[in-house]
Write a protein that binds this DNA or RNA. Structure first.
Length: 228
DNA sequence: GCGACAG
DNA sequence: ATCTTGTCGC
């Protein structure tokens, strides 16, 4: 339940996808500050069939305080675009928007599995999803796409700036003691500091946000069920 | 020209 | 992303 049918149309070429990013980029609000005490937070993730011709996109909405799942939706379909680093959003956006439309509650924040500002043209999946839905959004990547950084301290909460081309595009954040850090960046209507705080609030036990973990489980299960 | 390259 | 064995640790 974001705003009704998005009727998303995938670009037919790399050139067209680049033009779409160029057009949407200025619409992103990279300042925020965004909600510091959201009631609900959504996690989004996609699972692919080994054949690569089918995918399941899932959105799970968690109570931000208890981290209990209060709503969820899945969409099974075909990848909408080839896998091109930097144009990743075009591949997963249709399925994710479809799943978002099936929710019965409108989440206060979207936590995306991928980057936001930390993107070669400063418009990753989290920015794209935020702009299209109008919802505050942040990106939490497991591996880097762009930028340089120093290793953050070993304890949970330690972070270092992620820099690219003279810009601070995100933060490398340690969410658990002694565990590999994650890459946090702003997507839409959120400040970087608030994004980091929200991620820490979502990682009381594991490296990845509970939102992402819940969505990951859901889309994997949906993919398995759909093939049986 | 040669690598790197979110999921 | 997905394919994969064993292995270390709580």
């Amino acid at each position: 339940m974001t705003d009704g049918g998005h009727r998303y149309v995938a670009p037919g070429s790399v050139a067209e996808a680049l033009r779409v990013q160029e057009k949407l980029r200025p619409l992103a609000d990279l300042a925020g500050p965004g909600p510091t005490a959201p009631a609900t937070v959504a996690g989004l993730d996609v699972a692919y069939a080994e054949s690569g011709d089918r995918l399941a996109a899932a959105v799970t909405v968690l109570d931000a305080r208890t981290l209990a799942v209060v709503d969820s939706a899945v969409s099974v379909g075909r990848p909408a675009f080839g896998y091109v680093p930097g144009l990743f959003a075009f591949r997963e956006l249709p399925g994710l928007l479809d799943a978002l439309d099936r929710l019965t509650v409108r989440p206060d924040l979207l936590v995306c599995d991928g980057h936001g500002l930390a993107h070669p043209r400063r418009f990753g999946l989290a920015c794209h999803l935020g702009v299209v839905t109008g919802l505050p959004a942040i990106g939490v990547g497991k591996t880097p796409l762009v930028g340089e950084w120093d290793e953050p301290g070993p304890r949970r909460g330690a972070w270092t700036p992620l820099r690219d081309g003279g810009d601070v595009v995100g933060r490398v954040l340690r969410t658990r003691d002694g565990v590999k850090p994650v890459f946090v960046s702003v997507g839409h209507r959120m400040s970087l500091g608030n994004a980091v705080d929200r991620v820490l609030a979502l990682t009381p036990r594991y490296r990845l946000p509970e939102t992402t973990r819940a969505a990951d489980r859901l889309c994997r299960d949906a993919l398995a069920s759909a093939s049986t």
